[in-house]
């Protein structure tokens, strides 16, 4: 099924933020906003919830810690105990560096892989940009058009009165 969008194009982040607030206050659902760089404060006005990725990082880091400690204790303490430099078999202090490194490694990779999955980031040739200028210098507010219910003229007026420099329509073929 084809999806149709109305795109409000903005060229200033502060105008955009105000516009988002006003458009949402007018009861219009914003499909997505595309910006060339991260805008501070956009999460609040769009109602984007705080990301749970830090929790993922913490859990993965915790796994790394446990795995590293288990690995070293099992290998040098139980599987093949050796006396090295007169140290006890379970020389916990000298296991700390490797434990730390594996904690960081697992936290970073676990979080980044999760980020790629949830954000649908993957190498692909089929990239669907609603307006290519949004990776350059324009801020694009996309509103999905529902046949029969969306009043296009009123929507266009709403966007323009909130500072949009252009209002375009775009159909996306599924």
């Amino acid at each position: 099924m084809n999806k149709k969008f109305v795109l409000g194009i903005y060229d200033d982040e502060d105008v955009l933020l105000t516009a988002i607030e006003n458009v949402r206050a007018a009861g219009t659902k914003i499909y997505e906003v595309f910006t060339p760089y991260p805008i501070h404060g956009i999460d609040d006005v769009l109602g984007i919830k705080r990301s749970r990725l830090p929790i993922v990082a913490f859990m993965c880091g915790l796994f790394g810690t446990c795995f590293a400690l288990w690995m070293q204790i099992y290998m040098l303490g139980f599987d093949w105990p050796m006396i090295i430099g007169g140290k006890p078999h379970l020389a916990i202090p000298s296991f700390i560096p490797v434990t730390f490194e594996l904690t960081v490694l697992c936290a970073a990779f676990g979080m980044v892989i999760t980020f790629f999955i949830v954000t649908n980031l993957k190498p692909t040739l089929k990239v669907r940009m609603l307006d290519k200028r949004s990776t350059d210098d324009k801020f694009v507010m996309a509103i999905e058009v529902k046949e029969g219910t969306t009043d296009l003229a009123a929507l266009s007026k709403l966007l323009r009165s909130n500072g949009a420099i252009e209002v375009n329509e775009k159909e996306v073929v599924k």
Partner: peptide, 26 residues
């Protein structure tokens, strides 16, 4: 291929910022 289907949506940027901050922290 290198840009991994990046569209610059507000949601993606929000996560991007979180990931950068946590990566910086570790």
């Amino acid at each position: 291929i290198l840009s991994m289907n990046w569209t610059g949506s507000a949601k993606a940027w929000s996560r991007y910022e979180t990931v950068s901050l946590i990566l910086a922290g570790v």
